[in-house]
Nucleic acid binder design. Structure first.
Lengths: 142, 142
DNA sequence: CGCCATGGTTCGACCGTACAACTAGATGGT
DNA sequence: ACCATCTAGTTGTACGGTCGAACCATGGCG
């Protein structure tokens, strides 16, 4: 009988266990700011993105996103180019080093999550994934 | 067939959907810093705690915890008293206003999570809770 | 009594976010 | 064509959050 109190406790524990407080490293132990890791993931998966689009996906303010992209550029991982269809817009795209960095990150992440999955009983893995998805959708719908 | 990649995506989406980036308000929309909310929850549930104990529960560094407690005191929500059994230690305890604040927070949290649970199909609620717990334990074991 | 461990505080550094004010390009109605 | 308005981004300001290191006090132990 799951009530909201239990759910809240479970979420709180999950958040703390995963070190989601820690702003300067990913839960995977990579020495890269977590917001940059998220951005890197999106850009690696979907290629060039409008900055506003990136903001929407990461659920960040445009100003925050702007700064974030500037960081990535400072590291040599991304570049800005004018949007072809809109003079105001900016396209953000990974550079080759950025692609490499994203791949390295993806690998570390996979290793971490793989280790976690190993600790989840075989038969429950699908359930865990499905539950997380269900919960996310429920949150989104709120 | 749950693989680590899917799990990683699911976790990332969950984190973003719940606005866990936002440091200055709880996912429940209460205008209170999230770290203070966590601390308030622990103190409300278990009463007076050694500061070091609080740090352990919140998985924070002692320096961070010290500041955090100072914040709570500034708000008039908590007080420090010397630990009776150890001259070095400090006991942290909620004040009456702190108890009130914690109760208000708990209420908002309950409302939020209740709304989320409403969106989860009846038959899956226990699964969601169990999955979250399983996952947290798996993370802890890593 | 000295040595090391433990609990806390303070300092400095950095990440992460939002909101507000501003610039510049796009859009739509008159 | 023009002007009001909207949208995309940038920059400034403020604040929350975290850590590690340096430091002090107390405790435990040989």
């Amino acid at each position: 009988m799951a009530d909201e109190h239990e759910l809240q406790e479970a979420v709180a524990r999950f958040v703390r266990a995963f070190d989601l407080h820690q702003p300067d490293q990913t839960p995977c132990g990579q020495p890269i700011p977590v917001s940059e890791a998220h951005a890197l993931g999106e850009l690696a998966r979907d290629g060039a993105l409008r900055q506003s689009d990136l903001a929407r996906r990461l659920r960040l303010e445009k100003s925050t996103t702007s700064r974030l992209v500037t960081q990535l550029i400072k590291r040599g991982w991304a570049e800005r180019t004018p949007a072809p269809d809109d003079g105001r817009g900016v396209l953000v795209q990974l550079t080759p080093p950025g692609v490499t960095a994203a791949a390295r990150l993806a690998e570390a992440r996979a290793a971490r999550f793989s280790a976690v999955l190993d600790r989840v009983p075989e038969g429950e893995r699908d359930d865990v994934l499905r539950a997380l998805t269900t919960l996310t959708e429920a949150i989104d719908a709120t």
